[in-house]
Design a protein around this nucleic acid. Sequence first.
DNA 1: AGCAAGATTAGC
DNA 2: CTAATCTTGCTA
Length: 195
Amino acid sequence: MMMGKRLVAGFYNGKTEEVARRLLGKILVHESPEGTTAGRIVEVEAYLSEGDPACHASRGKTKRNAPMFGPPGTAYVYLIYGIHYCFNVVTAPEGIGEAVLVRALEPVAGLDLMAVRRGGLEDKYSLCKGPGNLCAAMGIAKHHNSHDLSRVPLYLADDGKVCGEIVTATRIGISQAAELPLRFYLANSPYVSRK
DNA sequence: AGCAAGATTAGC
DNA sequence: CTAATCTTGCTA
């Protein structure tokens, strides 16, 4: 299944906010043993190393956030509230702890498998809505932590499709630095978790 | 060794 | 608005 060109290292050049915006419209693909699922990124949030206490890396490197300090294009996957996984793309150069949280996808392949993973949910607009939900639908879990996103089975690709207007907003679900404009989503997408 | 907090979600 | 559920990191 061809989902476009894999993203290469140069894609991550520039500030994390810019890379976050650049990730909108790109495709996340998971070729799992159960089948392939893929979704177009429609909503993201940037987490920065400086002036951003909401960022997991803001208090230095620990066992948990270590992948955030790895090379750009690394996956940072963690369990939140003991129940849901959150999927991030490491964006800053190695040694700097920054990442982009993917908050919503427009499903583009493997919708049936996504529905099964979501417990029979059939509404395509809800399949990958929210960071925990998209991980469930895509079959992303803790064993993907630290994975190199230029390689199978989990990778990012660009199918060349141009995305529309980008809206800048504040991040969801955080208590610190909640006023920073670090959330970005596609204005015309019905798959965004919240407008 | 104990404990509070957490980039969420579904259900009342 | 709250419970569910568990790993991590900080404090003692």
